[in-house]
């Protein structure tokens, strides 16, 4: 507070008191790829079944490090009769912990 007083008392100086700083940011999924390999929609968008991006339509990573929309990969996994494979690398699909 002492510092502030000095600042004010010096002629020719100005002191800015920030009341509020409202910033703007955009969020993005921290994935290597831009689009989902299944639905070809942007990760930052949502899968074709969803209306809202973000929390409502999350991404999921497999152990092979490929990411998909959760809804997309679930559909894929459920459609497979036996063990499901990653649509990208054909490795066995397992959700990354």
């Amino acid at each position: 507070m002492f510092f502030l007083d000095i600042g004010v008392s010096l002629p020719g100086y100005v002191l800015c008191l920030l009341k509020e700083w409202h910033a703007v940011a955009s969020w993005t999924w921290d994935a290597q790829d831009e689009t989902c390999g299944i639905c070809r929609m942007a990760f930052d968008g949502c899968c074709p079944d969803c209306k809202l991006p973000g929390d409502d339509c999350p991404l999921i990573w497999g152990v092979c490090n490929h990411a998909f929309h959760l809804h997309c990969i679930l559909k894929w996994v459920n459609s497979q009769t036996s063990q499901a494979h990653c649509p990208m690398c054909r490795r066995e699909w397992q959700f990354k912990g």
Partner: peptide, 27 residues
């Protein structure tokens, strides 16, 4: 912090956008 809460999402600031309220104090 956002990244921690919402992993694996991260923020990218649009630095030139926003609204700032400030008070200028002169002598």
């Amino acid at each position: 912090r956002f990244n921690e809460i919402k992993t694996p999402r991260k923020l990218q600031w649009k630095k030139s956008l926003g609204t700032i309220k400030l008070e200028l104090q002169f002598q």
